[in-house]
Structures are given as structure tokens and as C-alpha cells.
Nucleic acid binder design. Structure first.
Length: 428
RNA sequence: GGAGAAAUACCCAAGCGGUUGAAGGGGUCGGUCUUGAAAACCGAUAGGGCGUGCAAGCGCCGCGGGGGUUCGAAUCCCUCUUUCUCCGCCA
């Protein structure tokens, strides 16, 4: 949520920044509403003060056998006078809230406006792998080796899903264990959160109200809960409605969870296999920082995610997203995209974002400033570290060999019980 | 899932319609005493949000969340959430 005072003090600036995200903002009505809100508050509170004063005088007046009935009548009259104003205020406040809650975060000043087409690659690792043989795609390779079973997944669940089998399951688990070991080494705190979250959590993270239809809802539950679309949603709510100490910041967490997403209508023929599904595994990092610490935290998390992909020996690029490609709640996003040879394109394996105080305002996540003793909103940041569903195909394809086997990246071998090569099943 | 109990400040806890602008204790901070510390004693300790004002200040809200009754609510009523105890079920 944006700071209402910031909008009021500098509406043109906020408007210009939102426009870079392709969001047409018009604050004319908001300003009128806000002015009216102040008037109403002053009026209501003045009357209330008088009511309180009169009520408080009752015991004393009673003791002196004064006319308490006159006081009762007077207070009732004041309350009646306020009723209309209170009703108007309630509606007005709801209207203001609805408008401000829907506004996306403003992008950082240094981002280019526009969408995907204006994303800027800023770094690459290694060069495109070259193969002396025709490359196979990961779907073919996985099926031949017996890593993934798509057909049975369709049978027991439906489309957009897959089953990790045998060495495929081991490779997936090895990746997750490798990621976890990296984060533990960097002293991030390991969290395993519930996968079913409540409405407030979705609101704080900025998913709701706009993206209520992008998640899976558990209709039978009372109250209704949704399945987390990313562990960020859980982690960023850990300190909702709390006031942290400045000395406790930054707080660094990571969590492993599956991510459940509707992704309705996003199917494309090229996205075969496990590139996009209703459920995928991800390890996610989240930091809570002070306002001053947030830029350094962002750089740290991008670097961490890159380091993991680099250790896996994969060709990737890091892109600075244009304003319009940053998600609703984020002020800044860098994507790490890994090369998928069969597709001839880069696919996102990590998205590192700085929400600034947008989520913290929604969730009232604050810290006490040591110097002033005042509370300030935290900054929240998140970065995947990493999503397996894109890394897995990238490994399979980038590490494929002429005989249809796949070499296991060196860093994963210890997590694979010493397995170094994944070989195609021999036909019986 | 069934039955019961509870939610008060940093923590424990009193309070059951009107000096409660929340007792008391612990903790924390400051002080006295002491070479220093402990003990003892004295003092301080509600936070958060909103409004108004140049400011000092003043006002509104606030005892789990929301709503209601009343001149007046921590206190009565409704509702939601959470926690605990017992039973059932289960990994």
C-alpha cells in the first residue's frame, strides 16, 4: 500500500511513476474525499469530546442531586447529531481504502518504463553451451531416463502436473538440499510454514484483492483458506502486526514449499514439461530490513541466487526488469534466467524483488528506530533461491550428452548419493 | 468432530456498569547507599493509530478482532479468531 501522505504531497510524481507501470492514476477524487474526511473527523471528534465530558460529570451531579436526566437528554441529542456524519465517514473511509489498496507499488526511479520488451540484461554467466549432436528437449530426456512420469500424473491428477520418479525424485530432492545448505551457510533462518494461508496473509503480500483468482482456494474450509502461490506469502507475514527492534534487523529467512498456482490461460505450446505447472517446488528467501538497509539486502539476495546457479555450472543471464514487468507489489525486480537449449530462450529461475514499504504498510510490519524511538515501516524483500521447475530442465538439457545420458553437476553429486550420470533406461 | 474454560500493558495478574486518565507483583530504566557489585530503599515505566495546532499542547480511538446495548463498557449482549483442558479420531 502506498503512503497516503506521499500521494497528497506529491500526486504528480506518484502519478508519473505509476504510469511507468502502465497504471493510469487520477487522484482528483481521492483528494476531495480526503479533505472531506478531515472535516468529518474534526466535527465528529468535537461532539464526542463534549459527550464524554458530560457523561463523566454524571456521578458528581448525581451526588449533589442535580438534574441527570437533562444530561442524558443532551448527550442523546449530541449522539443523534453525529449519526449522519459518522455514517458518511464510514462510507468515505471504505471508499478511500478500496482505492488506495488497489494501487500498485511505485517502481524505483531508475527503472525503464514499459513492459518485458524493455528489460535489460545486465550480466551473464558462461556462454551458450554448444553441442556436437542434435539436442533433445528435457521432456524426451526425462522420459527416456525415467526421471519424470507425465502420463501417470495426468491420470492421477490432471494436466499441468508431473511426477518425479526414481532418480528424478532424487535429483529434485538433491537440488532442494543443495539450496538449503547454501542458505544455512549464509545464516538465513530455515522456516517450514503452513501451505494453507488466510485472507489477511494474501492481503499483506499484495496478492489480494487483485489476484484472488490466481490462487487455489479451499472452499470447504471455514474461514476459507488458499494454498500459497509462493513461500514469500508466508514469510512476509511472519511479522505482520509486529514492531521489531532495529537491532534485530535485517531478519533473513528462507523456506521450502511447493507453490500452487492457477496460471489460468497461460498455456503455450512451447511450455511443455515442467516449465509451467499448477505445482512446483521452490526455496524462497525473504528479508526484513530498515529503510536504509534495503538496497544492500537486495544486492545480497541477487548475488546469492546467482551464486547458486553459477555453482550448478549453468549458462544464465540476469535482467533488470522494466517498471511494467515488475509485479504489482514490487518496486524493483531482477530476474535470473537460465538457458533452455531446446527452446533457445532464457527462462526465469529466480526473481529478486524489493517491495520497499508496500507490504509492510499493508501488514503493519514496523520497527523501532533507535535514534528517534519512533516506529517506521520495514522494507521487505524476496528472492527465489531457487525454483527447481526451471533449474531441473536446464540441467537436463545443458548437461545432456551424445548418448542421451545426463551428467550430474558436481555440486549435486554428494546430495545424489554419489550418482554422477543419469542414463537412459535400457529397453527390455 | 463433541463438551467446557479463557484472551487485560514487556511478563504474571486484579478488576464483573461511573475518580480505572487499569490495582498489585515481576522485569526494565534512573537514583540513594557502596571502592565496585549485590541486597535494601526511593522514583519512572501504555503502547499504537488518527485528528488538530508554528509549537507547547489539546482531542478522538484503545483491555484478542468486529458489531450492539447504555448518558457512561475492560465490565452486559451478539459474532468472529486464537489458546488451554477433557473426550473422540488420527500421522
Amino acid at each position: 500500500m502506498l503512503d497516503l501522505n506521499r500521494i497528497r504531497e506529491n500526486p504528480e510524481k506518484v502519478k508519473e511513476l505509476l504510469a511507468r507501470k502502465g497504471w493510469e492514476a487520477d487522484f482528483t477524487e481521492l483528494n476531495i474525499d480526503f479533505t472531506r474526511r478531515s472535516e468529518l473527523l474534526v466535527q465528529i471528534e468535537t461532539v464526542k469530546a463534549e459527550q464524554n465530558r458530560l457523561s463523566a460529570s454524571v456521578p458528581a451531579v448525581k451526588k449533589q442531586n442535580g438534574d441527570i436526566q437533562a444530561i442524558f437528554a443532551k448527550v442523546r441529542e449530541l449522539a443523534a447529531k453525529n449519526a449522519a456524519a459518522e455514517a458518511e465517514l464510514k462510507d468515505l473511509q471504505a471508499k478511500i481504502d478500496r482505492y488506495v489498496e488497489a494501487l500498485p507499488n511505485t517502481p524505483d526511479e531508475d527503472l525503464l518504463s514499459g513492459g518485458k520488451e524493455n528489460n535489460q540484461p545486465i550480466r551473464t554467466n558462461l556462454t551458450k553451451p554448444v553441442f556436437a549432436f542434435p539436442v533433445k528437449n528435457h521432456v524426451e530426456l526425462c522420459e527416456a531416463i525415467g526421471l519424470i512420469d507425465y502420463a501417470r500424473a495426468a491420470k492421477i491428477s490432471g494436466s499441468g502436473t508431473w511426477i518425479y520418479t526414481n532418480l528424478g525424485a532424487q535429483l529434485e530432492w538433491a537440488l532442494l538440499n543443495f539450496f538449503i545448505s547454501e542458505h544455512l551457510a549464509d545464516h538465513y533462518e530455515f522456516i517450514l510454514p503452513p501451505h494453507l494461508l488466510n485472507e489477511d496473509s494474501g492481503y499483506t503480500a499484495g496478492q489480494f484483492p487483485k489476484f484472488r483468482n490466481d490462487v487455489f482456494w479451499l472452499k470447504g474450509a471455514d474461514p476459507e483458506k488458499f494454498m500459497l502461490p509462493t513461500a514469500e506469502t508466508a514469510l512476509v507475514n511472519l511479522h505482520r502486526d509486529e514492531i521489531l527492534l532495529e537491532d534485530d534487523l535485517p531478519k533473513k529467512y528462507f523456506a521450502y514449499t511447493p507453490c500452487y498456482r492457477q496460471e489460468a490461460g497461460s498455456y503455450r505450446t512451447e511450455e511443455r514439461g515442467m516449465v509451467r505447472g499448477y505445482q512446483f517446488n521452490k526455496v524462497e528467501m525473504v528479508q526484513y530490513t530498515t529503510e536504509e538497509g534495503s538496497d544492500a539486502a537486495f544486492d545480497e539476495m541477487v548475488e546469492k541466487a546467482e551464486r547458486i546457479v553459477r555453482k550448478l555450472g549453468l549458462h544464465f543471464q540476469t535482467s533488470k526488469l522494466a517498471a511494467g514487468d515488475c509485479s504489482h507489489a514490487m518496486a524493483r525486480t531482477f530476474d535470473i534466467e537460465v538457458w533452455i537449449p531446446s527452446m533457445g530462450i532464457f527462462k526465469e529461475v529466480s526473481s529478486a524483488s524489493n517491495a520497499r514499504d508496500y507490504q509492510a504498510r499493508r501488514g503493519k510490519i514496523r520497527y523501532r528506530d533507535k535514534a528517534t524511538g519512533k516506529t517506521k515501516f520495514c522494507h521487505t524483500l524476496n528472492a527465489s533461491g531457487l525454483a527447481t521447475s526451471r533449474i531441473f530442465p536446464a540441467i537436463i538439457e545443458q548437461y545432456q550428452q551424445a548418448d542421451g545420458s545426463v551428467k550430474v553437476p558436481d555440486v549435486l553429486v554428494p546430495f545424489m548419493g554419489g550418482v554422477t550420470v543419469l542414463r537412459p533406461k535400457t529397453k527390455k
